Simulated scan of single mutants.
Amino acid sequence: MLVKAYAKINLSLDVVGKREDGYHLLKMIMQTIDLYDVLKMHKIKNGIHIDCNKKYLPCDNRNLAYKAAELFMHKYNIKDGISINIVKNIPAAAGLAGGSADAAAVLKAMRDMYVPEIHNSELIKMGLDIGADVPYCIIGGTALCEGIGEIVTPLIPFRNHILILIKPFFGVSTKEVYKNLDINKVVRHPNTKLLIDAIRRNKLSVLSKNMKNVLENVTLRKHFILREVKRELIDFGALGALMSGSGPSIFAFFDDMLKAQICYDKMKIKYKETFITRTI
């Protein structure tokens, strides 16, 4: 079985509180983009075997795809083993939910292979045990995500909008970013209602000018180069630019493919992991 695991971007990210267990309470608008890993899966006699085209990624139980397979096999008493080959295209440690997307793809594929009658709600419960972004990645599309990520409300699709995505040469730790966030010092929060209305009316310019991610308060302060990336994207004609998740990836929307292509050609020279893609 061949499956695609799609990356996500955050059109907004707000931290609205903190639970007693330390988890932050979020309110964010997520969007699937046409950048994906390819997973080739087939049954084997026993065990879980993972291999990947990126040698720096672990292929044992540190890999979220491995964890997803292990969790599914245990819950549904699957006696077969599974082999998973991952062709990784989504940058790692980038704020794009690459690992979570792989885990969600594994859960959905194993559902199709073994217990097709179970609903997405069951997969979402399992997904939350793997990572906060996995429930959204199971649903995909355009969605409002709340709680610690487990409350996923689909929105009107915001598809087919052009964007440039840049992953700088370094990664960031999501755990460290949240650890260093002081909610009390966040002055500007996303206007989630306004953004949802812009999505409903398909107003790219309104959305682009009002995107907000409160985690930029941490990551952009530590990595000044990200401010420069945002500035360059705007200079090339982007309608708006934002960091995705905890970073360091920066994306920017364009309303003209020629402008986007010129921007891509120039930025690709400076940043190896530069992509031109669309919302889907």
Rank of each mutant, 00 (worst) to 15 (best):
M211Q: 06
K272C: 07
H42M: 10
A65W: 08
F224Y: 10
K75I: 10
A94M: 13
L25P: 05
L242A: 08
M1H: 02
K43R: 14
A101I: 02
N202Y: 09
C59A: 14
D133P: 11
K270V: 13
F169T: 10
F253D: 02
D265L: 08
D182I: 03
I156Q: 15
G240S: 09
A101P: 00
K179Y: 01
G245P: 09
R200S: 10
C59W: 11
K270Y: 08
D197E: 15
V87F: 11
Y76M: 05
P248E: 13
F158E: 01
E117L: 03
I50A: 03
A198V: 02
V106E: 01
V229G: 00
S12F: 07
R231H: 15
T153Q: 12
L181V: 01
A252Q: 07
G17T: 13
G47P: 06
D256A: 05
N184Y: 11
R188I: 14
I196A: 04
C145G: 02
K272M: 15
D129G: 11
A93R: 11
A5W: 00
G22R: 06
L194M: 12
N217Q: 15
A241H: 00
K8A: 01
S208E: 13
K222L: 14
I118S: 09
I199Y: 10
F170G: 06
R201Q: 11
V152A: 02
P190N: 04
N85V: 12
A241F: 01
R221C: 13
H223R: 11
A103T: 09
E228R: 09
I84Y: 03
L107Y: 02
A143I: 10
T277K: 09
T142L: 03
F224C: 11
P135T: 05
R231P: 09
T142I: 08
D34G: 06
T192L: 14
N61Y: 13
M110D: 00
Y264P: 06
Y264L: 09
K203Y: 14
A143H: 07
V38Q: 04
R227L: 15
I82F: 00
L226M: 10
Y56A: 11
D112S: 15
I196Y: 03
V106F: 01
L96S: 02
G240R: 06
I156P: 14
K8M: 06
